[in-house]
Design a protein around this nucleic acid. Structure first.
Lengths: 251, 251
DNA sequence: CGAAACTTTGAAAAGGATCAAACTTTGTGG
DNA sequence: CCACAAAGTTTGATCCTTTTCAAAGTTTCG
């Protein structure tokens, strides 16, 4: 059934953070979702919009960002398949930031009305979604701490750690390697750094044989050291189970 | 009735962000709350804790913060009366940061069980609280953008703008003046800046007759310019009504 | 194949951090 | 209520991480 397949990353994601009852899962999958394909670098929702639907990333990569006065932007988060980048719009009518595709992506849309109905009839789903938005907040806190107090090198390392775990949950990590179709400019916008500096940090990390980034693929060569450099503690992601690869074995 | 008085800032806060039904408000006020006084600089909840109750700021000032490896800290948010600094613990069992008093404060505590019960029996309250945690997230996003992409001067200005609006809602702003019992070190920890630099920025803002900070009191001398310097747009606070002072008149 | 996008390199500049020390305010105990 | 210690603010000087600017390579893709 095609419909089930399209919802798959979302279900994987929700199950990674909460013990979703089979009934709730089934009800979730019955949501009326419209699926659309988008090219790269297209705004899906804009700062100031009042959306009447929620967006699901089914395939590809999107980001949430804010633009400041001089035109530069700050990327707040990357959204991988299974993510719901504007879930907050369910309770906040006006957008305080934008959501855009980073690469060509397949997105699903569900009307707010249907989401509210589901939340009202199934407290389990409501709790799962609330929890999801709270993890979102926790991720923002980790980011604030990184940008506010940590070195450029640590921030880059932290981001690569976080992405490995999140991608692993939805089956998009291949051991210590994953596809990451980001330009260095985008990395800089996400980390509060200039492109030039991102480039130099990446070279340093490669020289130290901690990670390698080539052809839009990240390979983590030394996980322990990467975690140490990024001061990475996955608690904030609130994952229920250990990741499928032995990322945290022995300590 | 003393009980009603203690809950007052929380009710004011909730009503500022949502149209709370009288029944919901009454039910909220019947929550079993334990009130305690705390001295300054005391941890209320610690990173790694698994709280079984929610904390309400009734009087004073608290902050949420994270400590990094070298011992420095990043303050994630200041909490004024009416705030619920660890509301997230309702759905995230383990704390990813700490909450501490900044000055001597009066806090209220409500068991998670009572909160869950209230949320289950009153969807209106659940929605209000969910909305509150989402605004929390929006505030984090504003902070990420500030620290990641804006100058020190802009960040300081933005913080003073935000605090005026939030304090106004609970009746703790006196026109363009409010008490802010923060040291410059604490301001620096919140803005990702060194004390020395905070000090210099404050002097600049005073020289430019934009704000004056003296004896723990902030006076905004030129609101329009402060907003401009901080690129402040209050949308993210999702306040229902215009603030009581004429902060946004004419534009 | 060629244009556009992206990465890399070098050099110079700047914003902010750090260090050190003096000055001021606040709070406390005698 | 004064004296003093502790906490907080201010100043100056120097250092350093990161930015900016500019231009040369390299990939990607139509």
């Amino acid at each position: 059934m095609v419909h089930v397949l399209t919802f798959r990353p979302v279900i994987l994601r929700l199950k990674s953070i909460i013990d979703l009852a089979p009934d709730d899962e089934a009800a979730f999958e019955r949501l009326p979702m419209t699926v659309r394909e988008f090219p790269a670098d297209l705004d899906i929702v804009r700062d100031g919009d009042r959306p009447h639907q929620c967006c699901f990333v089914l395939q590809g990569l999107t980001c949430r960002y804010k633009v400041i006065a001089d035109g530069r932007r700050q990327i707040l988060a990357f959204n991988i398949p299974g993510d719901m980048p504007d879930l907050q719009s369910l309770h906040l009518d006006i957008m305080d930031h934008s959501v855009a595709t980073v690469v060509p992506s397949r997105l699903g849309f569900v009307p707010h009305a249907a989401m509210h109905e589901l939340c009202n009839s199934r407290p389990g789903v409501a709790a799962a979604l609330w929890r999801e938005t709270l993890i979102d907040g926790a991720t923002f806190r980790a980011k604030i701490t990184g940008i506010g107090r940590m070195s450029a090198r640590a921030r880059v390392a932290h981001l690569f750690c976080e992405l490995l775990l999140r991608l692993d949950v939805i089956g998009l990590a291949d051991g210590f390697r994953y596809k990451l179709p980001l330009t260095q400019t985008e990395l800089g916008d996400a980390l509060g750094l200039s492109v030039v500096h991102v480039n130099r940090i990446l070279q340093d990390l490669r020289t130290d044989e901690i990670i390698a980034v080539e052809r839009r693929t990240v390979t983590i060569l030394n996980w322990e050291q990467l975690k140490a450099v990024g001061q990475f503690d996955p608690t904030y992601l609130q994952l229920r189970a250990k990741p499928s690869v032995e990322l945290f074995g022995g300590n």
